[in-house]
């Protein structure tokens, strides 16, 4: 199948970007990124610079891949990362517009690759339970209600891809922050650190992310279906800590 592509090209963070048109022949059973692989092999053979994009596990768990496809982060298939989009879902699309995440806190490095190290710095500001190696008590001395553990798990499945930021009109990372707070602060082991939500939110603002004004777009595009109720939960922790 022939797909018409308009791909964002940008030499570096300061360079001016533009859309470049391409056509590529790809089977409908190939994944979205395999379609781009095929394009890149053609570009290399033609002596051109291939399109730079992030990817790694290609099974939807590492959080590396991050393309805005026809205006939607991670593309049209719901609850799915870019690498798990298949061309069979795009056979009716005449043209595909492929762009990077766009946010002040995610500067473009090259083409479709952005710098998401701001997420790492948010975690460094308090997204952990401070326990020294070797000092833990026997695991079953601390029973945790199954329902509580399940809720913590649901929030913990965040893969840190940044789609929530890419789709948010405020470029806010509140869902990312809330997922970490809801994961750790729900569990009894994590409840000692009362300042976690405040510290994470401050780090988020310092990095240049906007704040949440309840558009709820993040929930719509999250490939792991993290719910905005995690934000409610974080806010409750936040006010309790004050």
């Amino acid at each position: 199948m022939i797909f018409k592509l308009n791909i964002w090209r940008q030499q570096g963070p300061e360079a001016k970007g533009f859309f470049e048109a391409h056509e590529v022949d790809a089977s409908e059973d190939s994944s979205f990124l395999e379609m781009l692989d095929a394009l890149n092999e053609n570009l290399i053979l033609a002596g051109k610079d291939p399109v730079a994009f992030d990817f790694d596990c290609r099974e939807g768990i590492c959080g590396s891949c991050n393309l805005v496809i026809n205006g939607t982060p991670h593309g049209k298939h719901k609850a799915t990362t870019t690498c798990q989009q298949y061309m069979r879902d795009y056979v009716d699309d005449k043209e595909l517009w492929i762009e990077p995440w766009r946010a002040t806190a995610f500067p473009v490095i090259k083409d479709l690759i952005v710098d998401r190290s701001s997420f790492d710095r948010i975690i460094q500001s308090g997204g952990y339970i401070p326990i020294r190696t070797g000092s833990a008590c026997e695991a079953n001395t601390l029973p945790i209600e199954k329902e509580v553990a399940d809720r913590a798990f649901d929030a913990a499945t965040c893969i840190g891809c940044g789609a929530c930021v890419a789709v948010c009109p405020n470029a806010s990372a509140t869902l990312f922050v809330a997922a970490k707070v809801a994961h750790l602060s729900t569990l009894p082991q994590g409840q000692m650190d009362k300042d976690r939500p405040a510290r994470l939110l401050k780090a988020m603002e310092d990095e240049g992310f906007g704040s949440c004004s309840n558009y709820r777009e993040c929930e719509r595009v999250c490939p792991k279906e993290i719910k905005v109720t995690t934000i409610t939960k974080m806010n409750r922790f936040l006010y309790r800590s004050g």
Binding site: I131, T133, C137, I144, A149, D150, Q189, G190
Partner: peptide, 22 residues
Amino acid sequence: TSIIDQAVAQGVPFAREYSGYL
């Protein structure tokens, strides 16, 4: 066995039974 203790203390949300135990 120490790995499980360490991971639980870090907040790794392992599957649990209805009793609350791992």
